[in-house]
Design a protein around this nucleic acid. Structure first.
Length: 306
DNA sequence: AGTAGGACCTGGTGGC
DNA sequence: TGCCACCAGGTCCTAC
């Protein structure tokens, strides 16, 4: 449950407030958000919609987006990859991708709007679902049942790593078709859905694999280790309600705890918990990449360079 | 098919 | 103190 902030200086009391200070939402952060929305939003009716940053709406046009949503009840909240899916009356779906800095906040309408609000969905119970997004990368999509059945608004997505169907054999199958450097491959949503920079680095460390290893160079044992590691770090992230790097604290804000589980991410130059070697940070495929040079030994085959 | 780089964005940080 | 270049990273797009 969220905590309640009681102000004695005339500030509103944030009862039933739901705040997220999660940065960089990946699968566990989105899963946590969806679980909260399932509990607190399903059954409510969207009465009114306002959009203050037009490009936050990815589909359809704003002229269609707003009137089509009005009066619809939220029937279910689910997740696919890093997408939040709100099923509405008539089978329409409001799909949300938080990208880098998106937040969904559920607050009493009388409370002050948080910074960077891009869209507000006024509910029938006096609350508002607020989409805040500092860097404006996040997107909202409204799709019809036919569009959703045709795969909109999703790009090609790989298997869900926490599904029971994502067995070792299933991982071998998707990996066998791919080549290239491990780190960018793990970030490729069409390979396995839901990993981002944090959990990709953590999975590689847990599996003892150097981020520059080539996918096709892995032994059977290393493939099994990587499969186990992906599932483990994501499951641990979900259990910890996500990873929070917040620059500010609020008395009513919910916060994930997985940052305390991280072995290498954002631990540059700090000692590896396993062997004490300073964690190294390099730029790989345009992303900062963290690894332990001892636990994750260098690729056995020399990379073509120089 | 893969790789690289730019674009989208803005607040925070560090250098001068 | 003030300015400014740079960085953060999810995804799409283009080019090679």
């Amino acid at each position: 449950m969220s905590t309640v902030s009681v102000s004695q200086s005339g500030q509103p009391v944030f009862s039933d407030a739901l705040h997220y200070t999660v940065v960089m939402p990946e699968l566990p952060e989105v899963e946590t958000t969806v679980a909260e929305l399932r509990e607190r939003l399903v059954g409510r009716i969207i009465e009114r919609v306002t959009v203050s940053w037009e490009r936050s709406v990815g589909h359809p046009s704003l002229d269609e987006f707003i009137p089509r949503l009005s009066g619809l009840a939220v029937r279910a909240a689910t997740r696919r990859a890093k997408y939040i899916i709100l099923e509405l009356d008539g089978g329409q779906r409001l799909v949300v991708h938080l990208r880098m800095t998106g937040h969904l906040l559920l607050d009493d309408a009388t409370t002050e709007q948080p910074r960077f609000v891009r869209a507000v969905f006024t509910l029938d119970d006096g609350r508002e679902l607020r989409f805040a997004d500092q860097r404006k990368f996040g997107r909202l999509y409204l799709v019809t049942p036919d569009e959703f059945a045709a795969g909109l608004p999703f790009p090609p997505l790989g298997p869900e790593p926490l599904d029971d169907a994502f067995t070792h054999a299933a991982f071998v199958a998707v990996l066998g078709a791919r080549r290239g450097v491990l780190k960018p491959l793990l970030l490729d949503q069409s390979f396995v859905a839901g990993l981002g920079n944090i959990y990709a680095d953590e999975a590689l460390h847990h599996a003892g694999l150097h981020p520059q290893r080539l996918a096709q160079s892995l032994s059977a044992a290393e493939v099994a280790n990587l499969h186990r590691a992906i599932r483990l770090v994501l499951a641990r992230g979900v259990a910890s309600k996500g990873t929070t790097f917040s620059t500010y604290r609020t008395t009513w804000g919910l916060e994930g705890l997985n940052q305390h589980n991280l072995q290498v991410f954002r631990r540059s130059d700090e000692p590896c918990y396993t062997c004490g070697t300073p964690v190294r940070r390099v730029k790989l495929a345009g992303r900062s990449t963290h690894y332990c040079p001892t636990c994750q030994s260098e690729p056995p085959v020399a990379q073509p360079e120089k």
